[in-house]
Design a protein around this nucleic acid. Sequence first.
DNA 1: ACATCAAATCTATAAATATCGATATGTAAT
DNA 2: ATTACATATCGATATTTATAGATTTGATGT
Lengths: 100, 100
Amino acid sequence: MDIIKINASLANAARYDILRWLKDPEKNFPPHKEVSGFGDGVCVSFIKDKSGLSQSTISHYLNMMENAQLVIATRIGKWTYYKRNEAMLAAYFKALQKDI
Amino acid sequence: MDIIKINASLANAARYDILRWLKDPEKNFPPHKEVSGFGDGVCVSFIKDKSGLSQSTISHYLNMMENAQLVIATRIGKWTYYKRNEAMLAAYFKALQKDI
DNA sequence: ACATCAAATCTATAAATATCGATATGTAAT
DNA sequence: ATTACATATCGATATTTATAGATTTGATGT
């Protein structure tokens, strides 16, 4: 776990928002048409729509967050779904609490 | 409290270290000559020495951290002492826990 | 094979950050 | 007032980040 990298991931309002939105996909996103529920997370297009940022920017941000292990990506058909990595978030939180 | 600004402050290894060092000044810094103990924190020079970065960089970083309300500065004579803002750190932690 | 669509990658630019050396400011001692 | 010292600010440059449009890749359906 790279705490500095995680902090950098969370040092941008759009990315911070994404992580919050993913806590409650039912509340924050419309239902998917190709899969039922949000078990694998939320597709990139929905996150892009909600954020108002461009597709390339969101793809880039999600990649950064995946690299920091904050989220987990799952490709199904044409879509990539992103969900929170709760284990890493819990570990991060614990480490932060200890350090700070 | 600006969580994004705080996260940005903590997205740099030197600044993250400083905050950690300030948790235990007795352990991490030599004793001051002009004041007794670390009640008001640690002087800039000691932090600079320990970090290995230039005086201007450290002064800048401490200013950033003060701006994010992570630390509190106290000027005594020629020296400025910096200590952790424990109240803000606790509030930050609580907010982060809620958001994330 | 081809067209279509979602997402990823590439290219580019503007803005912010990291960091330093040089200079200025504030305080204390002479 | 002058000197000395600690810290702050200024000016500069290199690196990184933010963000978008264009292009490519991967998957599906025809």
